[in-house]
């Protein structure tokens, strides 16, 4: 239970901020935290606390898989790459051919969520394909 104590502040904050299906399992020196955050802001807040407790996440004693509640199909998402355009691929994986690009900071439509890493999207130009979910921020 040592790690539950180390990350107690974070776990308490997750509970208080309405993270759904929150689960913390400690096994072989690693704390596995799973759950569904009500918003991207809550997820960011939890990662800020993680960074405070374990600066730069170097201890390797926690795997925090807290997702943001799935946006409904048809919802809009903003392309939040650093500055480049976002590749749209034929399938979910960087080994898949690029079939289009979504412009930096443009708004795309979420068609469906393949998994936590890849979403099927459609641009306003009608291009459809898979994009890396990390660079997509659901609107609203």
């Amino acid at each position: 239970m040592a790690l539950q104590d180390k990350y107690k502040e974070l776990l308490d904050a997750a509970k208080a901020s309405g993270v759904n299906n929150l689960q913390a399992i400690e096994k072989d020196g690693v704390l596995y935290v799973d759950g569904e955050a009500p918003s991207g802001a809550v997820k960011d807040q939890l990662w800020d606390m993680y960074n405070k407790i374990d600066p730069n996440f170097l201890a390797g004693d926690m795997v925090m898989n807290v997702n943001v509640a799935a946006a409904a199909p048809g919802a809009k998402a903003k392309v939040t790459t650093e500055k480049s355009n976002l590749n749209i691929r034929k399938g979910p994986g960087t080994d898949q051919p690029i079939v289009g690009k979504a412009a930096h900071h443009s708004i795309v439509t979420l068609v469906s969520k393949t998994n936590d890493q890849w979403w099927l999207i459609r641009t306003d130009k009608g291009e459809e394909g898979y994009a890396y979910a990390q660079y997509l921020t659901p609107e609203g």
């Binding site: 690693v30 990662w47 960074n51 730069n56 996440f57 170097l58 390797g60 795997v63 925090m64 898989n65 997702n67 936590d116 890493q117 990390q134």
Partner: peptide, 17 residues
């Protein structure tokens, strides 16, 4: 931070950094 978020989302046993 972004990479660690992505790696943790893959359900690894551990991320040794």
């Amino acid at each position: 931070r972004k990479v660690k978020m992505a790696l943790d989302g893959l359900k690894p046993k551990k991320v040794d950094a």
